[in-house]
Nucleic acid binder design. Structure first.
Length: 562
RNA sequence: GCCUCCGUAGAUUAGUUGGCUAAAUCGUCAGUCUCAUAAGCUGAAGAUCGAGGGUUCAAGUCCCUCUGGAGGCACCA
């Protein structure tokens, strides 16, 4: 019988190119996606982790104009900045693409054509403000005017912040373009709409089956469906985007939110010839996204997919909340936060940051980055507990036992301990399968806690005085736990995990596919000899944190990049 | 204005379909070992589970009101 490996396609939200990521962006999709993808590879699933930049839409266009730079050059520079940051964090994207690539444009057009052939597209005229001076149709938030109901003069777009009334932008009087302050005119043009009304019952049926999603995500999606989803425009009158392959639409492009998620597919297609097996055959698709993206990934994207009919729907939409900063929001203008582009300069070990960020992955609620917590979590949990267990074990073996181990003749003697370890490992696995990454990491740390207790109870430093072989047996058990810990923790702290394997003098790579199962066995060979240990993580001193804080509060303005 | 989610020890969180003295980690305090990055181990203090009311033999867990926070209310990325 041929064993069929389960396929898993994992995606992180496509970052938009009008800013440089801060820690909130990392912890809100790239890192959790990465941890999950790395775990899936270890488990032996046929895994792909896909991402890329979203380069379409009005904001990027305007930003490029403002900087007086050609759009493609602008996007390329920002793309490179993003890529550099994700690489530094060791985000293991199998492919990190761009929605500006031809492969994406072609695929989007094909994708659309199929939806049209299936009868889910209709055409209608809509009225919009057009700015003669800037030569663009203005999205609502670029229009300011007087609110009809309360007379507030600076009402923006579709909602008046004074009387909080939702309003039709076109009812604003004394409308002004927020870019140039000129008065825009109302123009009418044709647009394409996806017939959501026709799709919503199918969508609802599908959503109701997704009981394994987080409640917040599912409830939000169902609330939208309940309110009734109307037709939604999928085209725009701007120049930055995928051209609409239809007569009369030569000057229009697809709305960014229509083409962006198709970027997940095109990025897969760019990466492998076998792309269709991840999208059309038996596979599980996971989208890791921030909460602002939930409606798009749970409503509009699945609707597009249903309308198209060729592709799998997401298996899970993992919606994450936000990371705040010391009691407030991240703010570039107030220099409040941790911005990514200068982090490499601080010399911090990426794994240390990954580990702390894992503690604050906003899985169920908004969380907070706090400097005091950063220090104590790293120093006591990661280093004092986890790092120290590895270090005390390896140092002991190296300096007191000449690096040598002896497999216990009678493993029964340690069966109680080994059983506890195995239970923990199974628990970690269950949590990771559910993408409960933060909880799983805590269990991994409690496993090193178990190791520390074992070490203490066995008192190898006392045993050594009478029985060297017995000591080598005790340490054999400890070293094997180090090996297990390296495997389990490798999704979180991949470089450190590899370092542990090197010191353990093991040939395999703990980030290797299918190695997970070996964490459940006792695997160190008899008479194995380990290498000279070195410290995995440096402790964080108050001085280092002060310096770090200063460096990462700085973030360049987009214009400084050109 | 309407709707959804959240509010558990100083901090961060666990708490399955309501059921025994509400768990854990960090921090604090005390004791202790010494192989280890002054790390480890043991123990203690610390929560009327946001406030009030209700249903029930029994509620952190269900219902209502209030309060504080997060988000949605569609062409906004």
């Amino acid at each position: 019988m041929v064993k069929v490996t389960e396929k898993r396609l994992i995606t992180a939200a496509l970052p938009y190119v009008n800013n440089i990521p801060h820690l909130g962006h990392i912890v809100g999709s790239h890192l959790p996606g990465d941890i999950f993808a790395r775990f899936c590879r270890l488990k032996g699933y046929d895994t792909l982790y896909i991402g890329g930049t979203d380069e379409h839409g009005t904001p990027a266009l305007l930003e490029a104009k403002k900087q007086k730079i050609p759009l493609d050059k602008f996007c390329t520079t920002i793309y490179k900045e993003h890529k550099k940051i994700y690489d530094w964090f060791n985000i293991s994207y199998d492919n990190f693409s761009r929605t500006s690539k031809p492969i994406h444009h072609e695929l989007t057009q094909e994708f659309f054509q199929k939806i049209k052939d299936n009868g889910y597209i209709k055409e209608a005229k809509i009225k919009q403000f057009y700015c003669e001076h800037d030569k663009i149709f203005l999205p609502d938030r670029f229009v300011e005017g007087t609110c009809k109901s309360c007379g507030y003069e600076h009402a923006r777009g579709d909602q008046c912040e004074k009387c909080t009334k939702v309003l039709d932008t076109l009812t604003l009087t004394k409308a002004k373009c927020t870019l140039c302050s000129n008065t825009p005119e109302i123009k009418e043009s044709n647009h394409l709409f996806l017939k959501y009304d026709k799709l919503s019952s199918k969508l609802e049926t599908w959503l109701k089956k997704q009981t394994h999603w987080r409640h917040q995500v599912l409830n939000l999606a169902l609330a939208w469906v309940k309110e009734g989803i109307k037709e939604r425009g999928i085209t725009r009158d701007i120049e930055n985007g995928v051209k609409v392959p239809l007569e009369g639409y030569e000057d229009k492009v697809f709305y960014v939110w229509f083409d962006a998620p198709i970027g997940y597919i095109s990025s897969t297609k760019e990466h492998t010839k076998d792309w269709e097996s991840y999208w059309k055959e038996d596979s599980k698709i996971y989208h890791f996204i921030g909460k602002d993206n939930i409606p798009f990934h749970s409503i509009f994207w699945p609707s597009s997919l249903i309308a198209n009919g060729d592709y799998n729907l997401p298996y899970n939409v993992v919606g994450l909340q936000y990371l705040n900063y010391e009691g407030g929001k991240f703010s570039k203008t107030h220099k409040r936060g941790v911005f990514c582009e200068n982090i490499p300069k601080t010399g911090i070990n990426p794994d240390v940051l990954r580990a702390y960020l894992t503690f604050v992955i906003p899985e169920t609620d908004d969380t907070e980055f706090k400097w005091s917590e950063f220090e104590s979590r790293v120093n006591s949990d990661l280093i004092g507990n986890f790092g120290n267990f590895i270090n005390r074990t390896l140092t002991f073996v190296h300096s007191k036992l000449n690096g040598e181990l002896v497999q216990p003749k009678d493993l029964e003697e340690y069966s109680e301990f080994n059983q506890q370890v195995t239970e923990k490992i199974n628990k970690v696995e269950q949590l990771l399968e559910k993408a409960e990454l933060r909880h799983a990491f805590q269990e991994i740390l409690s496993l090193s806690d178990l190791g520390n207790k074992f070490f203490n109870d066995q008192e190898p430093w006392v045993v050594l005085k009478q029985d060297e072989t017995k000591t080598k047996e005790i340490l054999y058990i400890c070293v094997d736990l180090c090996r297990k810990l390296a495997i389990l923790s490798s999704p979180y702290i991949p470089s450190s995990s590899e370092k542990i394997f090197k010191i353990l003098n093991l040939k395999e790579n703990p980030t290797k596919e299918s190695i997970w199962e070996t964490s459940k066995e006792i695997k160190i060979p008899n008479k194995h000899k380990i290498n000279k240990p070195e410290v995995l993580f440096e402790k964080l001193t108050p001085e280092f944190i002060e310096e770090f804080k200063k460096t990462v509060a700085e973030t360049s303005n987009i214009k400084d990049l050109f």
